[in-house]
Amino acid sequence: MIDRKDLGSWMDGAPVEEGYVKGSSLGLPAQGAGAVAPFWRRPLSLVVDWGLCLLVSALVFSGDPLANLVLFFMVNVLFLSLFGATPGQFVLRLRVLPVTGRSPMVLRALVRTVLMLLLLPAVVWNRDTQPLHDVAAGTAVVTV
């Protein structure tokens, strides 16, 4: 007879290989600077970025919802292209690095931001804790 623990559960999480180091398939180190960023820093940096955009929108555009989205888009594309990190990522000591391909960072930032705004690619992750928008853009969020 099949037991429940033989089948597993969605609560067990994704299958994990023993000894696999997150980011190793991307060529990233296991620990320290350049390693895959811890999960908790990513949503926190997103909250900081959204908060900044909402504050500017409230002061300049009377909190217009379209202005919120445009500001978030512009902040992400501009800061990722120029500095490799958004203001929230800078505060939390994160950086977005290209890990595949040879496309310019401006194009990577555009793809990453558009897919992040669609929301679904941001909540689907691979075994390297790389969200789908980072996979499509060929980027990874790492610690500084």
Score class of each variant (00 low, 15 high):
residue 28 L to P: 14
residue 79 F to V: 00
residue 41 R to L: 02
residue 72 F to I: 03
residue 59 L to V: 04
residue 58 A to L: 15
residue 76 N to W: 01
residue 73 F to E: 09
residue 97 L to A: 09
residue 23 G to T: 06
residue 109 A to E: 09
residue 80 L to Y: 01
residue 128 D to K: 04
residue 61 F to C: 10
residue 56 V to I: 15
residue 76 N to F: 13
residue 135 V to D: 09
residue 116 M to A: 13
residue 57 S to Q: 07
residue 58 A to I: 03
residue 55 L to N: 12
residue 99 V to Y: 07
residue 63 G to I: 12
residue 131 P to E: 02
residue 118 L to M: 10
residue 100 T to L: 09
residue 59 L to Y: 07
residue 56 V to S: 06
residue 118 L to V: 15
residue 120 L to V: 15
residue 134 D to T: 11
residue 45 S to H: 03
residue 55 L to C: 02
residue 19 G to C: 09
residue 13 G to L: 13
residue 56 V to R: 11
residue 128 D to P: 00
residue 2 I to A: 10
residue 32 G to H: 02
residue 102 R to A: 03
residue 44 L to Y: 01
residue 69 L to I: 11
residue 85 A to T: 03
residue 98 P to R: 14
residue 59 L to H: 08
residue 143 T to G: 00
residue 86 T to Y: 03
residue 45 S to M: 07
residue 19 G to S: 12
residue 54 L to W: 15
residue 88 G to C: 10
residue 116 M to R: 04
residue 114 V to W: 08
residue 8 G to F: 13
residue 102 R to W: 01
residue 130 Q to W: 00
residue 92 L to H: 07
residue 4 R to V: 13
residue 22 K to T: 05
residue 11 M to G: 03
residue 41 R to A: 08
residue 16 V to Q: 14
residue 94 L to I: 06
residue 47 V to Q: 10
residue 128 D to E: 07
residue 51 G to N: 06
residue 74 M to T: 13
residue 105 M to Y: 03
residue 1 M to Y: 04
residue 8 G to H: 11
residue 101 G to Q: 07
residue 125 W to M: 14
residue 121 P to L: 14
residue 94 L to H: 01
residue 74 M to E: 14
residue 129 T to P: 00
residue 70 V to I: 14
residue 123 V to A: 05
residue 126 N to L: 11
residue 42 R to W: 01
residue 85 A to Y: 04
residue 90 F to K: 11
residue 37 A to Q: 01
residue 79 F to Q: 04
residue 3 D to G: 11
residue 126 N to P: 08
residue 37 A to Y: 03
residue 36 V to G: 09
residue 9 S to C: 05
residue 59 L to R: 08
residue 53 C to M: 02
residue 75 V to Y: 06
residue 26 L to Y: 07
residue 68 N to E: 04
residue 49 D to K: 05
residue 82 L to I: 05
residue 95 R to D: 10
residue 99 V to S: 10
residue 33 A to V: 12
residue 15 P to L: 15
